[in-house]
């Protein structure tokens, strides 16, 4: 049923569909617009930043907000707005990387566990349980302690920690879907397991994953900020929102205003991801009638 609705919508004018959605669910539409604008801004960072994000101007250190520096400068005279835009790119890249890895591991593992069942499911479920016992950031810190410090290393391990959450979700959905009549008939017609998983199980098990992925993007953004804040993520002089907060923390007593731009950026972006996840949950769930 829902599939049909989406096909009809895809034929219509994208803008018109978006406007109709916005009238029904303003928060969701605003969140999506905000995130798309952010991605566009980050992608075109090298053209739109007024200054180089790493260029130091020692004549304008900790400058206040002015027409030359819209958000002021940091303790090395670097333009805060430029660093905010460039840092947004790094933060978003890190979040998408972690969630991509979580999907790449979690979805196939969950499908296999749920569809095949038996002792394979039992083993996979215990592995999922053990990974879920690790406090996410702690394992990421430990992995950077082993692999060496770097944003990519850290975010890969965040992705690995998130993967079991998706795997558990997909497994639970697969257990339900595999009993459906159309799966049985596909099997009777001689479809291979791979074909059934790809064409019949996955499309019907993916709904909760889409919602969870949006929520995980917010969690990954916070994880990146934490790792970079601790000095285990992105390395100076490169900017990310977490690294900017680390810098602001060191100068907290001299210039507390430095902590507002990156902190608010993280807050708003995480809020947008969460709000979008919530509206997707309601939009995709056919049984839900309440808004919120």
């Amino acid at each position: 049923m829902e599939g049909a609705i989406f096909i009809v919508e895809r034929r219509g004018d994208v803008l018109w569909v978006f406007m109709r959605w916005a009238r029904r669910d303003l928060r969701g539409a605003l969140s999506l617009s905000f995130l798309l604008a952010l991605v566009a801004l980050a992608a075109s960072a090298s053209w739109v930043t007024p200054y180089s994000p790493t260029a130091q101007d020692l004549n304008a250190m900790m400058a206040p907000i002015s027409s030359r520096h819209w958000l002021g400068t940091d303790d090395l005279g670097r333009d805060t707005l430029s660093r905010l835009i460039a840092g947004g790119g790094a933060s978003l890249y890190a979040s998408f990387l972690a969630v991509f890895i979580a999907i790449a591991i979690g979805v196939p593992v969950g499908l296999v566990a749920g569809y095949i069942g038996g002792w394979i499911d039992e083993v996979i479920s215990r592995v999922i349980d053990s990974f879920l016992s690790f406090p996410a950031i702690v394992l990421a810190i430990a992995v950077t302690g082993a692999l060496g410090i770097g944003l990519t290393n850290g975010m890969i391990s965040v992705g690995i920690v998130f993967a079991p959450q998706l795997a558990r979700l997909v497994r639970a959905r697969t257990l339900v879907v595999r009993r459906e009549l159309y799966v049985d008939s596909a099997r009777c017609l001689g479809a291979t397991t791979i074909h059934i998983l790809r064409r019949h199980i996955l499309p019907n098990a993916i709904q909760p994953v889409i919602v969870q992925v949006t929520l995980l993007l917010a969690a990954a953004l916070l994880a990146e900020a934490s790792l970079s804040f601790l000095g285990l993520g992105i390395q100076p002089p490169e900017a990310s929102w977490g690294a900017m907060l680390a810098r602001a923390y060191q100068n907290m007593e001299l210039d507390p205003t430095q902590m507002y731009p990156p902190g608010l950026a993280i807050l708003l972006t995480a809020l947008a991801f969460n709000t979008l996840g919530e509206s997707l949950r309601i939009t995709l769930d056919p049984t839900s009638t309440t808004w919120r």
């Binding site: 916070l222 907060l245 902590m259 902190g263 807050l267 995480a270 969460n274």
Partner: peptide
């Protein structure tokens, strides 16, 4: 509550330190 879920807690910590301690 949705703000509380999205706020980076260490940033909140920095805000609290600035206000209540410094």
């Amino acid at each position: 509550a949705s703000l509380g879920v999205a706020v980076p807690n260490f940033w909140l910590g920095m805000l609290l330190v600035t206000l209540f301690a410094l």
